[in-house]
Amino acid sequence: MPVNPREQTAHSAVMELKGGSITLPVLKLLSSDMQRVQDQLKLKIHQAPAFFHNAHIVVDLHDLAAGHGDLDFPALLGLLRNLTLIPIGIRGGNEQHHRAAQAVGLAVLADGSYEAGTSPPARLSPQGAAKAPAPSRLIDHPVRSGQRVYAAGGDLIILSQVSPGAEIMADGNIHIYGTLRGRALAGVKGDQQSRIFCMDLQAELVSIAGHYRISENLDDSARGKPVQIYFLNDSLMIEDLSIPARQTHHGRT
């Protein structure tokens, strides 16, 4: 059927609605004491001001102790904005939190995925959101050159070494309580929140959700050390775990 050109113009799309996932820093609140939150956050931001300037942030209330029931949302919003952060939503918490958050214009986000702030809070109750964790795969012997180990749907835990020429993969995180000399690929189905932990980094390749780094591009300062590797801000971060008492500003998976 021929289409009238004018009609086509009238009906041509000026917008599309699509699902997408965006990685955002998550501020995990462990206390409702706004003064202390502000002090500690200030210190963190001071370490990397450029990174936090106008950064969107999600507030995670999962670990907020039960005793800290009342959260002063206007004060929280105020302190975050003062520190040049742009709070966009909350995750976790109880129904009271959800109502309070929506009252100040924050979205209530589902676990692991993003939903419109107007979704009924009932769907986000802790019982509904908690998924049974996928079983981890545990390997208690060395993974030798030429061997491949894949943990489908969950984490991979290796209690030994991973030799050069070996390949270990997981849909979730990878933990290696030994030397990693081979290749380690976490989040192979695209989970950018997955991480790699190892006691001694000498890897040929590390990858999180397809973002990889080869041995040649590994920083010498991280080599031979216990590290965690995660994906943040479009790049692979390698963090030395032997430096004590470090607290990360973003959520752990």
Binding site: S145, G146, S163
Partner: peptide, 13 residues
């Protein structure tokens, strides 16, 4: 050393 490691993998599987 690497070939031995490979062989150990085959032995184990």
């Amino acid at each position: 050393v690497r070939d031995s490691d490979r062989m150990l993998g085959i032995l184990a599987s």
